[in-house]
């Protein structure tokens, strides 16, 4: 395995997850936390929950975007270094869910930032979330390949 392959593999094997609660009802959040418990143990795939967008590769968002928190969501997304992947967990994050018509709700988070993986459910099941995260890790690797300038960054 050459260095290039190893780097690419590293992106797939080490996705660090940032979880942002975008005014969710906490249902999905508890399920995300459940992913870290011994029963599901997402660290098997090298997924670590970090609290800092500057260290994160995958942004996991739960809940709907409203006029108040879209700035924060945008800021956090901007502070993540490339390559980065966004996972929308739960039906609220995907489409706005039952809150879609509320006066202050913009809708799903894809109204604010580009989303790569949608994990539906109300709340989403931990298995589904881990599956989504794994997909996200693969997308992360693809995105890195697309960046296609490993050598340039290396120099």
């Amino acid at each position: 395995m050459g260095l290039k392959e190893f780097i690419e593999k590293s992106f797939k094997k080490s996705p660090w997850v940032l979880h942002y609660n975008c005014s969710s009802c906490n249902g999905c959040d508890i399920e995300i936390l459940a992913c870290m418990t011994p029963l599901y143990d997402m660290e098997r795939f090298g997924m670590v929950n970090v609290g800092n967008p500057k260290h994160a590769d995958i942004l996991v968002v739960t809940g709907t975007v409203n006029t108040k928190n879209k700035e924060v969501l945008k800021n956090i997304y901007d502070q993540m270094p490339d390559p980065k992947v966004v996972v929308a967990v739960g039906v609220c994050a995907a489409t706005g869910g039952v809150f879609r018509e509320a006066y202050n709700v913009l809708g799903g988070i894809d109204k604010v930032i580009p989303v790569d993986v949608y994990v539906p459910g109300c709340p989403a099941k931990p298995e589904a979330i881990i599956d989504g995260l794994y997909k996200a890790a693969e997308i992360l690797k693809e995105k890195y390949e697309k960046m296609g300038k490993a050598e340039e960054v290396l120099k």
Binding site: K54, E71, V72, N75
Partner: peptide, 18 residues
């Protein structure tokens, strides 16, 4: 000097606030 081209200059982390 390298980073001048590729790097992003961001503000310090402030819990997502400006």
């Amino acid at each position: 000097r390298k980073a001048a081209k590729t790097a992003v200059k961001v503000s310090p982390y402030n819990a997502g606030l400006n």
